[in-house]
Design a protein around this nucleic acid. Structure first.
Lengths: 249, 249
DNA sequence: ATCGCGAATTGATCTGGGTCAATTTTTGAG
DNA sequence: CTCAAAAATTGACCCAGATCAATTCGCGAT
């Protein structure tokens, strides 16, 4: 370590080894639970994976092979039917952990959701067995995973309220607030505005509406002066109080 | 232990001490992770709490004071607004664990949801500090809690699909399947049918519909010969395959 | 058994958001 | 800068489920 141009760069985009010490999410991710010495163990078993927008990391129903951290980009966690119906059950941003199933008896488990890259995506992959073993060895790691999972659960339940009881306008407003918050944690924001990580179609699939309704509600929020946009994906400014008001309880 | 009429029964229904060895959910609950010796520690800090239907255990926004196991009865986990809108985000049955927030820094946390008894309810309460300490001491306990939480998360996300994308008929069918499954785990079922733990209003609040729509869909399922009922809350028989078919993907 | 009252069902009507169909805007390749 | 393809917006119309309003059912108390 020490100089900033590696003599031999890893050429393969699928199995490049990870370098935890230089990881963008070293401290904000699960790994923050481990000391510099401990993290060497993780470093030993991890590798990088890069995906282009639209590429799929795992598919609903596959045998679950590994865990992962998102180190860069945005992905969506989704569940869908043969017909067009599709529900995005979560967004994955840098420092988010991937690996929703686990059985202490070590039996094989199925992936429950499909994970698809929305932007250029970079993952840090850990093989199942190795990672589970580390969870047993480092209680702080397991504790942090538990806390994260509890947070996700809370988020999912809040989303149930949105999907079960909110109006179209409230859903869009809530989504904007949610994104503003998530993005803020990752520095991807200007002083007043922020970028939408999803297109209209994905927003619709996340908040249980159609593209057209999402579009109409956004238009309305603009007419009401609650948000202002430059291009379809960049929110230039927004009156957070009014937005919060519009998001309903 | 040994004879079946205690010489001195605990008179107070609010702080009767728990007796883990005789607990109805000793093995099916979180406590199953602990050996008979280890469980003595839990026994030391736990106490029973009994609630009548409609009584509330904790309220959304309160300071979180403790964790608990459900030992008997049914409760609902809900979130509501000032106006009548209400979403039931989960059902609690015997052996389910209560305690959705946790921070390793020990800071105070708010209850995120209201918990209300649906039937006569019996809880086994653990004070926050004591329980968190035990979690640190017994890794198997923490592991089991993690697994349970991951399961809950999966369930919540499946429910997001129901709320975001399913039709009224599919929602009712899915709810029935869900209840049949949950009940089956607790022996509360006959050979062919099962009881509904919730009234029409609560079902509606759980699957994001109104009472009237729930009622109409149930009527339709009966007319279609998919279910047969005796009284409003007891399903006498149902064609599981047809029900599964009706529940949509 | 029967009474009374909350729960459930049923009916009539209304409406928020879905569907179908054009435009218009944005984006990115050359 | 120009052009084509994709994404977003807008409009017209429709329908699943909400709302409002009676009945009817079913269960616990007497």
């Amino acid at each position: 370590m020490g100089h900033d141009h590696s003599a031999t760069v890893a050429p393969d985009e699928l199995s490049e080894p990870a370098v935890c010490a230089a990881c963008a999410v070293r401290n904000s991710s699960l790994c923050g639970a481990l000391s510099s010495e401990e993290i060497a163990d993780l470093n030993g078993i991890s590798r990088r994976k890069r995906l282009k927008p639209g590429q799929v990391h795992v598919i609903e129903g596959d045998v679950a092979r590994d865990f992962a951290n998102v180190t860069k980009g945005v992905a969506k966690l989704l569940r869908g039917a043969e017909d067009g119906r599709m529900q995005i059950v979560g967004l994955l941003l840098p420092s988010d952990f991937i690996g929703g199933t686990m059985r202490s008896d070590g039996a094989a488990v199925q992936e429950h959701y499909t994970i698809e890259a929305v932007s250029d995506l970079e993952l840090c992959i850990f093989p199942r067995d190795g990672f589970q073993e580390l969870l047993g060895r480092y209680p702080a790691l397991e504790r942090k995973l538990l806390e994260r999972t509890l947070n996700e659960l809370q988020l999912a339940r809040d989303w149930m309220v949105l999907l079960g009881r909110k109006t179209a306008r409230e859903r869009v407003a809530t989504f904007f607030l949610h994104v503003a918050e998530k993005m803020r944690n990752h520095g991807c924001h200007g002083a007043v505005g922020f970028d939408l990580p999803l297109g209209r179609g994905d927003i619709a699939d996340h908040i249980g509406l159609t593209i057209e309704t999402v579009s109409r509600q956004i238009t309305q929020l603009r007419k009401d002066g609650i948000i202002d946009m430059k291009g379809a994906r960049h929110i230039v400014s927004c009156d957070m109080d009014a937005l919060s008001e519009a998001s309903g309880f």
